[in-house]
């Protein structure tokens, strides 16, 4: 569904060349949930912007559903880290969710999406009247209503408090299971990556390469208490942690 082949990105500015992405190749199958985890400043956002067609790679290619990405591809939605800045402050919640939609299905899709994230009550509020966690739910609802084949999430929960974060993680698992969407989730939080994904790709520090890919063989039904307490969870998390520590020191 999503293929990244030999992706490389070099920023050229003010006589200084910065190599953000060295050489990245990976693939997501249809309906797969993959987490990208890496140390902070490792070019995760650059990678995500290349995949979303918002940034042109220096070399290599991205394909979504077999088609080469040159601009934002069809059927791809993004949930940005900066929820406060990705919602339109002059539109009410339901208008934000319905913004990319058109046609007769617009009202229904918007309503369902808001219900799915538990915000049916807040439809007439403005985003800035909501808490950070609720704003991110609105952004997620907008992505759901768009009915994407591929959903990209860029550290979506980095700026919310711990309890809200746990709720949102479970919400995302549920959305993914219900919609069967292919989900690429970028995070710097190792626990989050292991808890959420079917597979975790560990990235190195910049210039970024892939250090390791591991299958998360935890049961599909996960919950914050038992999953995080399982010995296998601790094991996987330890393996990722070791890699990232090495990446930082080298």
């Amino acid at each position: 569904m999503l293929e990244v082949n030999g992706l490389r990105k070099v920023y050229d500015g003010h006589g200084r060349r910065v190599e953000a992405l060295a050489d990245l190749t990976f693939k997501l199958d249809d309906g797969e949930f993959v987490c990208l985890v890496g140390p902070s400043g490792c070019g995760k956002t650059t990678l995500l912007r290349c995949v979303a067609g918002l940034l042109r790679p220096t070399a290599g290619e991205v394909r979504v559903a077999g088609r080469l990405v040159t601009g934002p591809p069809d059927g791809l939605a993004v949930v940005f880290q900066e929820y406060g800045r990705s919602l339109f402050p002059w539109l009410r919640v339901h208008e934000n969710v319905g913004l990319p939609l058109s046609g007769p299905r617009k009202p229904g899709l918007g309503k369902e999406a808001l219900a799915a994230v538990g915000l049916a009550e807040a439809r007439d509020a403005y985003p800035w009247q909501l808490s950070g966690g609720m704003q991110q739910r609105v952004a997620i609802a907008r992505a759901i209503a768009f009915e994407p084949k591929v959903l990209l999430m860029d550290e979506p929960f980095a700026a919310v408090d711990a309890q809200t974060r746990a709720d949102l993680e479970d919400l995302i698992r549920e959305v993914w299971r219900r919609l069967g969407v292919t989900l690429l989730f970028v995070t710097h939080d190792i626990d989050e990556a292991v808890y959420l994904g079917q597979r975790v790709i560990v990235l190195s520090a910049s210039p970024t390469t892939i250090l390791d890919t591991l299958d998360v063989d935890l049961p599909a039904g996960r919950d914050q208490l038992t999953t995080r307490a399982a010995p296998r969870f601790t094991q996987l998390r330890g393996r990722v942690y070791t890699h990232i520590q090495q990446a930082r020191t080298s």
Binding site: L54, G71, V78, F88, W90, L99, P100
Partner: peptide
Amino acid sequence: DGVLADTCAVYRVPPVRRMVLRAAS
């Protein structure tokens, strides 16, 4: 805001009419 511009690009929202004019208002 660059994030708003990215949002428009991803969600196929015509940027000038639906976003730039309002954001700059």
